[in-house]
Amino acid sequence: MKFLVKWTKEGDMRYISHLDIMRLFQRAIKRKGIRMKYTEGYSPHPKMSIAQPLSLGYTSVGEYFEFESLEDMDPELVRELLDSAMPEGIRMDSCSVLRETKKAVGALITAGDYHVGIRMEDPEGYRKIREAARWFMEQPSVTVQKVQKKSGKIKEIDIRQKVRELEIQQQEGYLLLSLKVDTGSQSNLNPEVLLEKLRERAELSGGDMETMIERVEMYAESAEGTEIPLYFLK
């Protein structure tokens, strides 16, 4: 049976890498006596994947992972079992049964919501960031240069096209940016890249601001062609 679990990653758990989380989940599943399905072949590994790896240092209340068990189980029981096996900072929010498709759910992701918190000593900085954000949203295109991992070549990327929504609110002691950006294997934007652009536009340095990034939700295209939160997938 294939399960999709929505989970959160908060506090110090933001420093735990993707690979380490994989191992943590595998061990948790094992500890709770849930028998996983393994891949065939020379070196079998459990059928499990985490959708759209989160950058190290980000928190999230909208993470997902999927895995296959040998036996059928009640998804709420699976959620409870796994939740009780997690360290502080990781919670299992919900669990649903997926139709056993070949494709991983992670591959269907198209968009993500993020919260970006910015804290600065100088309140003038907040105004500058607001202005930079307004400027950004008014542009038809904003390009940044990205070094290609394999070839080492520099490629121009239009990040404006990847930002679908950007709202700013002043909170007690920090500025909150709410973003909806392209996320997934087709088109992806790491909020840090946008942040860097805004910083540059506002003529601020990294040392001027303290930032926190949290992923809030991820979306996929439904059969009807609308974008729906991942937990609605069947």
């Binding site: 110090d12 758990m13 420093y15 735990i16 380490d20 190290l56 096996a85 360290p87 303290e210």
Partner: peptide, 21 residues
């Protein structure tokens, strides 16, 4: 500590909170 560990290699070394701690 939180402000520092992202600047170093393998931050998981410095945060504790492991299972069974």
């Amino acid at each position: 500590i939180a402000r520092s560990v992202m600047k170093v290699e393998k931050p998981a070394r410095y945060i504790g909170g492991e299972l069974n701690a």
